[in-house]
Each structure stands twice: as structure tokens, then as C-alpha cells.
Design a protein around this nucleic acid. Structure first.
Length: 309
DNA sequence: AAGGCTAGCAACCGCACCAGA
DNA sequence: CTCTGGTGCGGTTGCTAGCCT
């Protein structure tokens, strides 16, 4: 027996929200809150909408202090850092960006950042990182690979970051941009038991140790990221004063060789094809999408661990 | 000027997971 | 233990605006 649908899909309205609908929803939530029951809400206020749709509309558009578009360079770097470290946990990433929603961040990543950093897309953009030391890196869009492609993206980012010394703020590791009030969303108590060591190994190999991270963030393990019953995410005020000092970054080996080795390890490329992906010709036939090997994540883990010593 | 193509974005869908009753 | 509702996510669709030919 399957799960009962949350609403009668045939009778509820779909598509873009009208200004009147927005006004009704906004007014009700402003006065009563969501009371934790989105399913019953549309009936209560006379909206012919699915409860999930109401929730989505509120969270992504009507909520106070929502910002759309105009992502700053700082936000770009933070998104990339977090994506490389924790993957597509868009809500977690969005929680570090005041006023941003997970849907916004996801769309921004998929339509802009991913292309800018990793290349690919329907109309491939053939450049990688906009940095002086920009490597000759050309990677295809990892579409359709599911978890494997996500891991590949992260691996790409991780390798790129390690080789070009991408930093969020000169002299400061990326987490200096995080919000201390939310630190523990990434703490063991919040269920991300391996997060700190993961951050260390995947993003800043050889720079700071786990104890430094945790010390810098206070006692840790308390004050999880608070999400209110209305779905609003509390934000704190960042302070770089507690940021552990970063030691120098060291790079070894050639990035292209490294990625090639990893790709072959994953087994999604033949020897002769790898050149098509790495520093290859524009519009080549090679594609990350052909990589559906389930072991990609473990290869990625192995990679980041290997560079975390 | 008109039509085709593409990027960007809002919104939806289905699924999985979790917590509480 | 089961059921229900809330939440998060990846993937996808549909619309619109802008660019290109």
C-alpha cells in the first residue's frame, strides 16, 4: 500500500502564484504562523493549492529577508567551498548564506557556478577558475550521473582548489565566513560526525587540524542550526577573530595527471579518452555523464584522505 | 522584424528520511 | 510497530527574456 497523496492533485491549482494568493498566504502566516501543518493550511485560508506548494512558496519567496539574485563573490566562494566539502546539502549550504534559499543556491549552482568552475552545460563554457594561475582544465558537465556525478564534481573542485590555492579570504580558510551560531549544524552532534576531518582533508589538506577547527568554534556539539517552525533559519554574526591561523599550502604533482589518474581509478575512462576531458579539445565527446560507477565516492574519499596527511 | 535557440528561474514531482502520535 | 505529516533533495518542466541568425 502506497502513501496517500498529500492533496488532490487533480483539483489543486498549479503553476505561478498570483499576487492575491501571495497576499493571502503572507497575511495568514504573518498572523498565525504555519502552526506546523502545511497540509491543512491551504484549506484553512481558502487557497486552492497543495500544502507542499504553499510551504515551498513561503520558504523560497514570501519569507521575510529573502534575497534573490546578485550573488556576491564571497557567496560564490562559500558555496564552492561547502559543495566541495559536504556535497549537495543545499539547505545546509543555504543556511550559511543569510537570505538565500536552498532552491536559489541549487539553481545558482546548476546554472552558473557549475559551468563556471567545472565547464560543460548545454553550451559549454570552456574556462575553469577565474584565477591568475588558471589551469588548463576542461571538464564536461556531469549530468545524469546521480550520486556518482556529484562525487565527481566534488573531486574536481577539490583537486582544483588544492592546486590553485583557492581561498575564500586571503589568509583565511573558508569557514571564517561561516556563522558561529550555526557551526554545530556541521558538528558531530548534528549528525555530521566526519565533517571536521572531512573539511580538513578535502578542502585544506595540511593546513589546520581537527582540534583547531573545533577549538575555534567553541565547545562544539551544541546549539544546532535552529530552524523555526515557520521554516526560517536563524543566522548569527560571523567573527574571523576565532579563526585558527592557516599555515602555508603546499601543492605537489601536476593537477592534470592527478585528475587523469583518478578518472582511470574510477574506471569511467579509457586511457585514450582521458585527454579529451583534461585539457582536451572543445566540444569533445568525452563526458562525465558516462561515469556511473558506484565507487566514485570511495575514490573521492580516498583522494581527500590521501591529501590530508 | 521574425523566428529559433538558450539561459535563468520559479515551481513541481517523486522519493527518502525523520519525528511524533 | 505503523501511520502521518514535515522536510530535504535531485531531477525535471514550463515560462520568459535576451541573444543570434
Amino acid at each position: 500500500m502506497g502513501r496517500a497523496p498529500c492533496c488532490d492533485k487533480a483539483s489543486v491549482k498549479k503553476g505561478p502564484w498570483a499576487a492575491e494568493e501571495d497576499a493571502v498566504l503572507r497575511a495568514y502566516v504573518a498572523e498565525h504562523g504555519t502552526a506546523g501543518n502545511w497540509i491543512a493550511l491551504p484549506r484553512k485560508i481558502g487557497l486552492n493549492r497543495c500544502g507542499k506548494s504553499c510551504r515551498l512558496r513561503w520558504l523560497n519567496y514570501l519569507r521575510p529577508n529573502i534575497r534573490h539574485g546578485g550573488f556576491t563573490g564571497e557567496e560564490d566562494r562559500l558555496i564552492c567551498s561547502l559543495y566541495a566539502s559536504i556535497g549537495s546539502r543545499w539547505s545546509t549550504i543555504a543556511a550559511q548564506l543569510p537570505g538565500r534559499t536552498d532552491n536559489d543556491v541549487k539553481n545558482y549552482w546548476n546554472t552558473k557556478l557549475k559551468r563556471r568552475l567545472l565547464g560543460g552545460g548545454r553550451r559549454p563554457i570552456r574556462y575553469a577558475l577565474p584565477l591568475p594561475q588558471q589551469p588548463r582544465l576542461l571538464l564536461m558537465s556531469p549530468t545524469g550521473g546521480g550520486a556518482a556525478s556529484t562525487a565527481l564534481e566534488r573531486m574536481q573542485l577539490s583537486v582544483q582548489r588544492r592546486h590553485v590555492g583557492l581561498q575564500d579570504t586571503p589568509g583565511l580558510p573558508f569557514y571564517s565566513n561561516l556563522w558561529p551560531a550555526q557551526q554545530s549544524v556541521l558538528s558531530p552532534a548534528a549528525g555530521y560526525s566526519g565533517f571536521w576531518s572531512h573539511i580538513q582533508t578535502s578542502t585544506y589538506p595540511g593546513r589546520v587540524n581537527v582540534q583547531d577547527h573545533q577549538r575555534a568554534w567553541g565547545s562544539g556539539g551544541t546549539t544546532p542550526l535552529s530552524t523555526s517552525s515557520t521554516g526560517e533559519t536563524a543566522v548569527g554574526v560571523g567573527s574571523s577573530s576565532s579563526t585558527p591561523a592557516a599555515s602555508s599550502v603546499t601543492f605537489d604533482g601536476d593537477m592534470e595527471d592527478e585528475i587523469e589518474m583518478l578518472l582511470q581509478q574510477i574506471g569511467c575512462l579509457e586511457e585514450e579518452d582521458s585527454r579529451l576531458l583534461i585539457g582536451g579539445e572543445a566540444g569533445s565527446a568525452g563526458s562525465w555523464s558516462s561515469c556511473s560507477t558506484p565507487g566514485v565516492d570511495s575514490v573521492f574519499q580516498g583522494y581527500v584522505q590521501g591529501h590530508g596527511q
